[in-house]
């Protein structure tokens, strides 16, 4: 069955279908992904300096080789639970539209995922509420399995986030 599915997806992709690359990561047990083009670097957790009176989802600033980076906790932005940092915790350095480099706190980085248009479900209709501002779609990769905490063995989905809405608010 699995082999069949994989072959099928290869066949589909050969048909000149546009394929986009995403970086998949874990936030509070669920899998999310952002367009890879916006990611500059992945860091292990540096020491963060909290900024008093900053917006609640800014967990601090850090220095990356002399460059001052504001680190945003995506879990807070998305109103998720906040597991304590582990050895897997990472900071994604992403470029904003006005060329600021911003850090995104994630619980774990998984891998780069290539998704064909047919594997992406545009989200507007699927979700309601605040989340829908950030979510551009749902990815349903055919040949990679993501086991999600809330639905083990269930839906194999990646929530695709729009970085520009997240960082530019």
């Amino acid at each position: 069955m699995a082999d069949l599915a994989t072959n099928q997806s290869r066949v589909l992709r050969n048909a000149d279908e546009a394929v986009r690359e995403f970086l998949a990561f874990k936030l509070s047990g669920e899998y999310y992904a952002v367009a890879l083009t916006r990611i500059r670097e992945i860091l292990s957790l540096p020491s963060l300096t909290p900024v008093p009176r900053a917006p609640a989802d800014v967990i601090g600033v850090c220095s990356v080789r002399g460059l001052l980076v504001t680190v945003v906790d995506l879990r807070r932005r998305l109103h998720l639970e906040e597991p304590a940092p582990t050895r897997q915790t990472r900071i994604l350095l992403a470029a904003t539209e006005d060329d600021e480099t911003i850090g995104l706190y994630v619980d774990e980085v998984r891998q780069v995922v290539r998704l064909a248009e047919s594997e992406i479900e545009v989200a507007q209709s699927a979700l309601g509420g605040e989340l829908s501002d950030y979510v551009v779609g749902i990815g349903r990769p055919r040949d990679i399995r993501f086991t999600s905490g809330s639905s083990p063995g269930g839906d194999n989905i990646l929530i695709l986030l729009d970085l520009s809405t997240i960082v530019n608010r």
Binding site: V51, R53, D98, E100, I102
Partner: peptide, 12 residues
Amino acid sequence: KSLGKSLASVRG
């Protein structure tokens, strides 16, 4: 070094 634009609104 100045704080990034995302913190421009933070006073002090």
